[in-house]
């Protein structure tokens, strides 16, 4: 009895040591990341202040912060951020819905998927920015054009990866549904869809980034509002602080959206 007690105590302390070591390692990784970030900022600021780089072209952290404040108070920056976010989320959601619908259709009909395959491959490898001028002619300049540009960048790849995911289900699992008296619809709802949740989530992660790319391209060409517009406008009037501030904001938005999907993945993951 006593022996086993001491053994548990030893085991516990070993476990504790392991946990401590693991936490230490994690902390070191996080602090390394922070160090690199601040080192970069310091180097940037120093080179700019010391005149190693021309702050007119390359800006500096302090000027970025000042510019951010100025945009926020005088140039309704929040509106621009909101527009870009709205357009990105709208095209992301539409890509998701349309992608799921098309991939489902392709899965249902193998004939249709064979017919559609070359078109999807060609459309997917087409540089979508080439389509933007067409959208402007067809739809004018404005939110619709930009959302369509965002959709065009992500949609074809999304259909292809969702359909590939759907078709990778082990055929025996589908046979199982048929042996239990199920129809193709049951096979889709009970096997294909739940089996593809990881692929659906990873496609969403890629899509949210691509939608942002498409929206910024759209804003370059056809907008009077949004962060893409601020970048183009800033470069045209040689306000590099504005360009760099907008780019940094885009970085933060991209990260935020990615984290959003990751949170969703965690939620779903605990259900599965």
């Amino acid at each position: 009895m006593k022996k086993s007690k001491t053994r548990t105590a030893v085991e516990l302390s070993r476990q504790e040591a392991y946990v401590r070591k693991h936490r230490q390692y994690k902390r070191r990784i996080t602090s390394m990341r922070a160090v690199i970030f601040f080192l970069f900022l310091a180097l940037w600021q120093f080179s700019s202040s010391a005149g190693l780089i021309d702050s007119f072209f390359f800006s500096s952290p302090i000027q970025v912060v000042l510019c951010f404040w100025e945009l926020l108070t005088e140039k309704s920056l929040l509106m621009h951020i909101g527009i870009t976010l709205f357009e990105t989320l709208a095209s992301f959601l539409l890509v998701f819905l349309a992608g799921m619908a098309c991939a489902t259709l392709l899965w249902y009909s193998s004939g249709f998927s064979k017919v559609a395959e070359p078109y999807l491959v060609i459309l997917n490898s087409l540089p979508k920015s080439a389509l933007a001028p067409l959208f402007i002619v067809w739809l004018g300049t404005g939110t619709t054009t930009i959302i369509v540009a965002g959709i065009s960048v992500a949609i074809f790849g999304s259909i292809i990866s969702l359909y590939t995911g759907f078709s990778q289900v082990e055929p025996e699992k589908i046979t199982l549904i048929y042996t239990l008296g199920g129809k193709k619809r049951d096979a889709f709802l009970k096997v294909v869809l739940p089996n593809s949740v990881p692929i659906i989530l990873s496609t969403m992660k890629v899509n949210i980034g691509l939608a942002l790319v498409g929206v910024v391209i759209g804003e370059f060409l056809a907008a009077r509002r949004g962060l893409g517009y601020l970048i183009i406008y800033g470069s045209q009037v040689f306000q590099m602080h504005m360009v760099i501030t907008s780019i940094i904001l885009l970085c933060i938005i991209a990260m935020g959206l990615y984290l959003l999907i990751q949170q969703m993945e965690r939620r779903l993951g605990s259900h599965l």
Binding site: E172, K173, T175, T179, V191, N195, V197
Partner: peptide, 14 residues
Amino acid sequence: KIGYMLQRDYLFEW
């Protein structure tokens, strides 16, 4: 009504 048991269990992990 026929019950069919396959070579593997194919229980769904979800």
